[in-house]
Structures are given as C-alpha cells and as structure tokens.
C-alpha cells in the first residue's frame, strides 16, 4: 500500500518538474498529463482518494491548457469517481465541470448522462432543489438527443421531486405530460395508468375536490380505458372520502388498493400527507361544532 503511494508521489513530482520546465520538444502539458495519470492510478491503488482526485483535477487542467476538452472532461469524471468515496458535494462539482465541457464540444449524450449522475448525487444528499435542476437539465439533453424514453424517466423523477417539495401543480402537469406522450406508443401505453395515478395523488394533496373530479374526467380523455382500472377506482374513492371528510373511508380505499398492488414509498408518503390534511379538517370541524 505504502509502495503504491510512493510511486504515486514520484510520478506527481516528475509531472510537476515537467510543467515547471521548458517544453522544447513535444507538448509538456500532454507529457505531464501522462505522468499524472500514472500517479493517479497509483493513488487509487493505495486507496488515497483525496490525493487521486486532486491529481485528476490537475490532469484536467493540463488538458485544458492543451485545448483538449474531451480528455479534460474525462479527467473531471475520474476525479468525481474518486470524490464519490469521501465527498459527494465535490463529486457533483467535478461532474458539473465535465458536463459543461461535454456541452461545449457537443457531446450532449455524455453531458446528459453525467447531469443525471449529478441529480442522483443531490437526491442521495436529500438536496431536492438541486436534484430537480440537474435532472431537468438531463431531461432536456436526452430529449435533444432523441432519447425520449430516458427523457421521460428523468421527467418522472423530476415530477416526484416536485411532489415531495409540495409543488403539486407542477408535479401534476409533468405527470400528465408524460401520460400524453406515452399513450400513443405501443410500448409505453401500459404505464399510463400508473402515471395518471401519480398525477391524481398530487391533485389529491392539493385538497381541491373540484380539481380532482375534473382531473378524473381529463384522465378519461387521455386514456379511455382508465375508468375501468383499479387506479381510477382508488382515485374516485379517495376524492369521495376527501369530499365527505371521511378519514375511515379514505383509509379503507387505500388499504383495499394496497392489498392488490403494494404502494411504493413515494405514494405512501403523499397519501399520508393527504390523510393528515383530511384529519386536520375533520378536527377543525369538530372544534367548530
């Protein structure tokens, strides 16, 4: 282990000498980058991630000096992989530098992939605002590259984040947009009922009964088969129980649906919010009487 570390330090010193010297023959930045790359490999073997990350950032700088943006971006990605071992925040910053470079050289697919990675890092860190920003960027890039399925899956994640941030209107719009896009595709149309259920749950959290009922009619227009599904029945029952202010009926409807199709954590969280709101209303009415 110490041996690897020593080799890494040696190569880094050689690279520094190369950079501080005169580059008469060949490109000193290119040669320094090669030496630093070997140093980085040794630091990785020694599991000295912070040193390895710093070396890869140096490599990126060398490539930028030589106007080689593609290799610089790749070096930032390597640095990010090292940062991931101890500092997700730094990893996100390194990936952001890579994304900007990939966009400059029109490698939009790579930019999209790494934007998605940044979004997922922020999700891991529970920084939902930033996660939404980067996932949005990824969705736009995937869309511009004609990768509609990837763009859709990003949009789905963004909508879920908006719902967690209690931006229910925005979340509903995004879910409905996904449903509209998917309904005309033989492969994606089967997921529409799930997407519409998500949209309906977001509407439910807003607590506007009229809006919920209007939405159910609108979903019927999007997917004519929707009214025959258990998802529709759940939404209709929840809307009715919200209208009546009946917490028991609300719970029964959720329980009945869950007994057939297990509700995922996201839906559970939102339905719990809706239920608590309903409870509050019920208690307020009790206080008034």
């Amino acid at each position: 282990m110490g041996d690897h570390e020593g080799h890494g330090v040696d190569f880094e010193k050689k690279a520094d000498q190369k950079l501080s010297g005169w580059g008469l023959f060949g490109n000193k930045y290119e040669e320094a980058a090669d030496l630093l790359d070997r140093a980085g490999s040794f630091f990785k073997l020694a599991k000295n991630w912070s040193r390895a990350a710093a070396v890869y950032k140096k490599i990126a700088d060398c490539h930028l000096q030589g106007d080689n943006k593609h290799d610089a971006a790749s070096a930032y990605v390597e640095a990010a992989n090292c940062y991931k071992k101890f500092s997700l925040q730094d990893a996100a910053q390194a990936l952001n530098s890579a994304v900007n470079l990939f966009q400059e050289i029109s490698r939009l697919n790579m930019a999209a992939r790494y934007s998605k990675d940044i979004g997922e890092i922020y999700l891991q860190e529970q920084d939902l605002e930033n996660a939404a920003v980067y996932l949005n960027r990824a969705a736009d890039l995937f869309d511009s590259e004609g990768q509609s399925s990837q763009a859709n899956s990003m949009t789905q994640k963004i909508a879920e984040i908006y719902a967690q941030l209690e931006k229910y209107q925005k979340a509903t719009e995004l879910f409905e947009e996904i449903a509209r896009k998917s309904i005309n595709n033989n492969l994606l149309k089967y997921g529409v009922r799930g997407t519409l259920l998500n949209a309906g749950i977001c509407q439910l959290c807003r607590g506007d009964v009229v809006a919920i009922n209007n939405s159910l009619e609108r979903y019927q227009d999007i997917d004519p088969t929707f009214s025959g599904t258990r998802e529709y029945k759940l939404l209709a029952d929840l809307a009715a129980s919200t209208d009546e202010g009946d917490v028991g009926k609300f719970t029964d409807a959720v329980k009945e649906f869950d007994s057939m199709t297990r509700l995922d954590p996201w839906k559970t969280t939102l339905l719990l919010k809706a239920k608590n709101e309903l409870k509050k209303k019920e208690e307020d009415e009790d206080d008034l009487t």
Binding site: Q147, S148, S149, N185, L187, L188, G191
Partner: peptide
C-alpha cells in the same frame, strides 16, 4: 420490460 424494450429500440 416494455419500458426497457423501448429504450433498447432507441
């Protein structure tokens, strides 16, 4: 699986 197939097609 359908979603994956769609992605694969793309």
């Amino acid at each position: 699986t359908m979603l994956t197939l769609h992605r694969q097609g793309e």
